[in-house]
Amino acid sequence: MRLFLLFSLNHRGKPQTEVNVMRPADLAREHGLSTQAVRNYERDGFLPPAERTAGGYRIYTERHAAALRAYLALVAAYGHATGGVIMASVNADWLDGALTAVDRGHAQLLRDRETLATVRRAVDHLTAQPAPEDRPAVPGPLTHRRTRPPARPHPRHPAHLGGGRHPHPHP
């Protein structure tokens, strides 16, 4: 599969000839993440399963680093949810699931572009219109006057309970 081959190449695009073993901290540091984030990404299927040492420690390779770089690039393009679906599908060898997620992501990006274009046209239309003549474009000399009477205090407000004093003064 083509996607599998992408992950078996090193970061320069050359075939991997030697296996560089990395600890979770090494992989995390290389990408500016916490080790817990790397473990979570593996748990969620965004990274291929790691081999374990006899003591149970995870062993990551360049394949994991390439998968993490791919996931982070997908997050930047599609967001965490869609990037995660794509990577989990790839790691489960489910190419149709990955491609469906890519197609849906492209459709969402197209809808987002159309929405932004509509908003841009509306803003352009509003900013191109001159201010109506019957109302000032800036506050006028009478703007400070109230158009409704001032609000009255609530009936249980201390001002209504006798002489402006609180009925239960603190000791």
Rank of each mutant, 00 (worst) to 15 (best):
A37N: 05
V38I: 06
R69H: 08
V75W: 02
A88L: 07
A98C: 06
L6T: 02
V75R: 13
L3D: 15
A98D: 00
V21L: 15
L27F: 06
Y57S: 09
P15R: 15
P24M: 14
G13D: 10
E42W: 05
E62F: 01
G32D: 11
G79W: 12
P48G: 03
P48C: 08
R23E: 11
G97R: 09
G83F: 08
R39G: 08
S89V: 02
H64S: 02
I86D: 07
E42A: 00
L3M: 11
G56K: 14
L72M: 14
L33Q: 11
L27R: 12
A37F: 04
R39E: 06
V85Y: 08
E62D: 14
A88C: 05
Y57W: 12
A25H: 04
Y71I: 07
V90R: 00
G83T: 13
A76V: 11
A92Q: 07
L74K: 09
E51A: 15
E51D: 13
G83K: 03
S8W: 01
Y41T: 03
I86S: 12
E62K: 06
V19L: 05
T53E: 11
Y60R: 01
H11W: 01
P15Y: 15
A67E: 13
L72E: 01
A76T: 12
F7S: 10
M87A: 02
E30G: 06
A76L: 11
L5Y: 15
S89M: 03
G84M: 01
I86L: 10
G83A: 12
A65N: 01
R58E: 10
R63A: 06
Q36E: 13
A66Q: 01
S34C: 10
G55L: 11
A92P: 04
A70Q: 05
A54D: 03
G84F: 00
R58Y: 14
D44F: 04
G84C: 02
N40M: 09
T61Q: 05
Y71P: 00
L72T: 02
H80L: 13
H31A: 11
A28E: 08
A67D: 04
G83D: 11
A50H: 08
A67N: 07
E30M: 12
A92I: 01
V85D: 14
S8E: 15
A81D: 15
S34W: 11
G13E: 12
D96W: 01
G83M: 10
L6Q: 05
A66D: 00
L68Y: 00
L95F: 04
P49Q: 11
E18V: 07
L47Q: 00
